[in-house]
Simulated scan of single mutants.
Amino acid sequence: MGVAILAYVLDVVSKVIVVARLEGHASIELLGGFTTLRVTRNSGAAFSIGTGMTWIFTIIATCVVIAIIRTARNLRSLPWAVCLGLLLGGSLGNLTDRILRSPGVFKGHVVDWIEWPNYPVFNLADSAIVCGGVLAVYLAWRGFQIDGTRQVAAGKNDADE
């Protein structure tokens, strides 16, 4: 729960700051141009897929949040707790934008503000979701279960690793 709260708070606070300080101003280049701070509004999903279909992404994000909360009831694994915390915090961060930001309730555009060369503009919620997703794939690949147990491939045991 702590990871989810931290991811959510960092995302919301960062968006409040960048909208107040950067929106309507020139982009700020950092690290020799490797990172640019530029406020954009995204009505779609990652890579601007589904632009203008905010209500669909609001429903999907709500379902993801509910699924994570239901799954968390059976959680007995610290790595999975971190994973689900990142996914939950990030999902809630972008869902908050979709529900509360302009152009209207449940039609809000997500605030993105971090840009790397040859990569779409993103935010901290997106980062949390990607990190949580990568961690989920790794944990599943290594056989870690949410109940704290570990399954290994047939013919192997933990001592073989």
Rank of each mutant, 00 (worst) to 15 (best):
V111C: 00
K107I: 07
V121W: 13
P120E: 12
T40M: 06
G85H: 00
L95D: 07
R70N: 11
R98M: 09
D97F: 06
G89Y: 04
P103L: 07
S77N: 03
I99M: 14
R98L: 08
L100G: 08
A61Q: 02
A72K: 10
L78N: 03
G108N: 02
C83W: 05
G50E: 05
L84M: 04
L86A: 07
G44I: 03
S127A: 13
M53P: 07
E115A: 11
F34S: 08
N94K: 00
A67V: 07
R41S: 10
S102V: 05
G104Q: 06
S43V: 10
D126V: 00
N94M: 01
T71N: 12
P103W: 05
I59D: 15
I114R: 07
L78S: 02
S127D: 06
A46W: 10
R101T: 03
P120D: 14
L75R: 05
V39Y: 14
L87V: 08
T96A: 12
G104T: 04
S127Y: 10
I69D: 07
D126K: 01
G85P: 01
W113R: 07
I68C: 07
R73W: 13
L92D: 04
T71V: 15
A72Y: 12
F106G: 08
F106Q: 06
V121L: 10
V121I: 10
V121D: 14
I59S: 09
H109P: 00
V39G: 15
G44C: 09
A81K: 02
K107R: 15
W113A: 11
S127V: 13
